[in-house]
Amino acid sequence: MNLDSAAFKDWIASHEGLVIFHKKLCPHCKVMRTVLTKVKAQMPDIALAAVDSEEQPEIMKMAGVEHVPTLCAVKGGQVRGRQTGVFNPRETMAFYSKA
Rank of each mutant, 00 (worst) to 15 (best):
V31C: 03
P57S: 08
S5I: 01
P89K: 00
L18W: 01
M60I: 03
E54W: 11
A50G: 12
L3N: 01
D10W: 01
V39T: 01
H67A: 10
S14E: 12
N2W: 07
C29Y: 07
D4G: 10
K23Y: 05
K9D: 15
N88W: 00
Q42G: 14
P44H: 02
Q42V: 00
V74Y: 03
E16M: 08
T70W: 04
A49F: 00
V74G: 11
M1Y: 11
D52S: 12
P44Q: 02
Q78K: 15
T84N: 15
A94L: 14
G81M: 00
I20G: 14
C29G: 13
G85M: 06
K38L: 10
L3R: 02
F8I: 08
K38N: 04
Q78D: 08
G64P: 04
H67C: 09
Q56M: 14
S53W: 01
P27N: 02
L3Y: 04
Q56S: 07
V74T: 01
L36V: 07
V86D: 05
V51R: 13
H15L: 09
M60N: 11
E91Q: 14
M43H: 03
L71G: 07
L48D: 07
K9G: 15
G85L: 02
L48P: 02
S14D: 07
S53L: 00
Q56E: 11
Y96T: 12
C29T: 08
V68N: 03
C26L: 00
K40L: 10
L25E: 02
D52M: 13
